[in-house]
């Protein structure tokens, strides 16, 4: 069997179903969404074909500008927190025995796959007055009595970090597993303490990986939709929440689509940046 370009028409056969599915159910919906973002909204939740910039223009209002700004800041804060915890954690994980690694990977994958609804519910319970962590603090005498910690920005931030941390670790894991262990050993023989070796050798060696991970986690956090709703106040809502709100409850599809297109552009730009950082990492 030679690996060569397809020779006959039949050689393309296997591609027909996957390509068809991806084109019909991803490319076309995507294109539909872009088209709808230029449509005109009608009363009653319908819309009609048109070509107007109105939906985009509306988006640049003060309110939506604020929401966008908040979404970006929130996602950045989550990404920074996750990377700050995730890098040393993944480094230690990659240096532990294989069975410990596997146990952690299974646990992290399980939490990562847990529905956002369930994570939101778990955290709202944990931060609630009746069944929350404050009961424990009160019991220990650290607090006068249990109190509710949600809704608050801190609650949104904590839960989103919780949700994104497993993702961060799994993104970092391959790079850290492959990191040559003799690098830190060399630093140790030259007199660096383990912590010093971590910051002077591991972190610089992974600089591009860390940048790429920050961006990946940022996009991941940008997609968070339920946690701000469940744990925050309306001013903590993100663009994802607004898009859903406009599409489902306000029945303003063109405007929702315009916001989604904008979100894609932001994400794509960032993925491009991540890929670029990855390339640089390979070249280095």
């Amino acid at each position: 069997m030679r690996r060569e370009p397809p020779q006959r028409l039949a050689d393309y056969g296997p591609l027909v179903f996957p390509a068809g599915m991806l084109i019909v159910f991803f490319v076309i919906p995507f294109a539909t969404m872009i088209a709808v973002s230029f449509f005109e909204r009608q009363q009653g939740g319908f819309y009609q074909p048109a070509f107007v910039w109105e939906n985009y223009a509306r988006f640049i209002s003060l309110f939506f500008g604020k929401v966008l700004g908040f979404s970006l800041v929130l996602a950045m804060a989550v990404a920074a927190a996750c990377v700050a915890i995730g890098v040393p954690f993944t480094y230690l994980l990659s240096r532990s025995v294989r069975n410990v690694q596997i146990l952690w990977l299974v646990a992290l994958l399980s939490i990562l796959s847990l529905s956002e609804v369930m994570i939101g519910f778990a955290w709202s319970t944990l931060l609630s007055r009746t069944a929350g962590i404050t009961n424990l603090f009160a019991y220990l005498g650290l607090m006068a009595g249990p109190q509710a910690l949600t809704p608050s920005f801190g609650a949104v931030m904590t839960a989103m970090t919780y949700q994104a941390l497993p993702y961060t670790v799994l993104v970092l894991y391959p790079a850290l597993v492959r990191l040559d262990p003799t690098l830190t050993e060399a630093a140790r023989t030259l007199g660096a303490s383990p912590i010093r070796a971590f910051f002077t050798v591991v972190v610089p060696a992974l600089r591009n990986t860390i940048v790429a991970t920050l961006i990946m986690v940022f996009i991941f956090a940008l997609g968070s939709y339920l946690l701000p709703q469940l744990l925050g106040r309306p001013q903590h809502w993100t663009l994802s929440v607004l898009i859903t709100d406009q599409a489902i409850y306000q029945s303003n599809m063109p405007f929702a689509a315009a916001m989604a297109v904008f979100l894609v552009l932001v994400s794509l730009a960032l993925v491009g940046l991540a890929v670029y950082a990855g390339r640089r990492r390979e070249a280095a």
Binding site: F26, F30, L222, G223, A257, A260, L263, S267
Partner: peptide, 8 residues
């Protein structure tokens, strides 16, 4: 972000 695929 999943909301994009969802909306599409």
């Amino acid at each position: 972000p999943p909301v994009i695929t969802a909306l599409g």
